[in-house]
Design a protein around this nucleic acid. Structure first.
Lengths: 263, 263
DNA sequence: CGGTATTTTGAGTATCGTCAAGGCCAGTGG
DNA sequence: CCACTGGCCTTGACGATACTCAAAATACCG
């Protein structure tokens, strides 16, 4: 957790490579440069808090690298993870009320932030940026619904399987999370057990048992406690309740195509 | 369920009272009349399907009255309820791909629909409508996350409690769903047991048992199988895991303020 | 090397899923 | 008008699963 590598607060405004973000590259050059002008780069160490729930939400941000987690703070002070943010995801509330979630770095991360007022000003004169936000939201909504389907799975094994498949499909573009080898997919679990257990609506013990149960049945292999090798995607899909998270056909295609490029 | 009242398909284009929808009333008059011009009114009977998943999504709609349910169709043909739509909610995918969910009437309902192309044309020249959509999406996202928190509750009692509180807070404006009396809140459960069980990620039997368990403990009273009287909001909140769905303070305020107006 | 945090394993209990049966209500057809 | 049918809700019993508590094993860090 407390990874000491990767320097601390690199506060100073550095050059932002907004155009390097796939999502952003479709924007007109003028808008991009306007955004770059008000862009502020921040390096985060794992565990660092970006925004608190209830904050007046004075800034908007985009994830450049690493993984952030959104968490809802409950009345009794406990927190509940409600989602993960990865490269290209936009966070921070626009136009209306305060933040509904706290945002923390799950891994060391790099983000770009903008003052909300300045961002909204640019937004008002760029339909393209507006469209981008809308699509980002639609995406987010789909992911949230995928989560609902995973969580509605009655057994932990099923939820865990759904989670792993979700990682494969949604995070497949992210380095260091998914790597495809000959017959299998290597998945790095980017959050620790308590968070994962919370996310799946269960306890650490059950997560551990479910993971080992899947391993015992040959669906996957546990390389490290946070690193698994998925051996049987199809069986995993069945475990997950045949949602279309990672329908076998499309994942098999993924495996095959990535195998060609990576050997 | 199979309510025979409320006439069948009232296909003909009728006058739409878009301005009667609270959400819409903030739009400029010119935009409203443009929308009214392309608006089509549809009456739905419970169980009727509005849109199938995978449809090219040629129309956009707004719920005028009643409740629709969104459901995701899984690979094996089963369906999974992923949310409910109520008055003022906008559905139908804009700009990009096909519908990801099927939409069905959970109760008799009235909706307004627009051809997507015409709607998007108006959207392009109305920042207000655009903003409205964005906020609608943000809302939707919050609701989806609330659902995640509810579903992450390990015990059925907790999930059911969360569901009831969600009904109180989100649907409090809808007639015939929530009514507040002296010491309690009367909640009409707008969907049947199989759907509710599915939504909560469990089986009908467990829902039945959990509901009666809550009643036995005095947290609520079952008036009809789909009509409950919430007696102890605070205890219910604890059951739900102290999420801020219906934090006791705000709900108590709701109770008190509504009591004044309703006797 | 020792201390702490994290993960895993184990045992016992509570909860839930499953199967089966019964009750309630609405619609159907005699 | 009444028995019949089918869907929905409830209840009961039993086995499977997961939660709880406790302790051991492992990894991490100084």
């Amino acid at each position: 957790m407390a990874n000491t590598s990767a320097g601390r607060h690199d506060e100073g405004k550095s050059v932002c490579d907004l155009d390097k973000l796939a999502a952003m590259s479709t924007l007109p050059g003028s808008i991009l440069s306007d955004l770059n002008a008000i862009c502020q780069r921040k390096m985060l160490v794992a565990g660092e808090t970006v925004a608190h729930a209830g904050d007046p939400s004075t800034s908007v941000g985009i994830v450049r690298e690493g993984i952030l987690r959104m968490e809802k703070i409950l009345a009794d002070g406990r927190e509940h993870v409600v989602g993960l943010l990865i490269e290209g995801d936009i966070f921070g509330r626009l136009f209306d009320g305060p933040m509904h979630f706290a945002i923390e770095a799950a891994t060391d991360a790099e983000i770009y932030t903008f003052r909300r007022s300045a961002f909204e000003a640019i937004l008002l004169r760029s339909p393209e940026l507006d469209r981008l936000l809308l699509l980002n939201l639609l995406n987010e909504l789909d992911r949230a619904r995928d989560w609902m389907i995973i969580l509605a799975q009655p057994k932990i094994r099923g939820r865990l399987a759904g989670f792993l498949l979700l990682m494969c499909t949604r995070f497949q573009s992210i380095d260091h999370i998914i790597t495809v080898t000959r017959q299998s997919i290597r998945v790095k679990i980017p959050i620790n057990r308590p968070d994962l257990a919370h996310l799946l609506g269960t306890r650490v013990e059950s997560v551990s048992r479910a993971l080992h149960a899947l391993a015992d049945d040959g669906l996957l292999e546990i390389l490290q406690h946070d690193l698994v090798l998925i051996l049987d995607v199809e069986a995993l899909t069945v475990e997950a309740g045949d949602t279309d998270l990672g329908d076998p056909a499309s994942l098999q295609r993924l495996v095959r195509t990535l195998q060609k490029s990576s050997g």
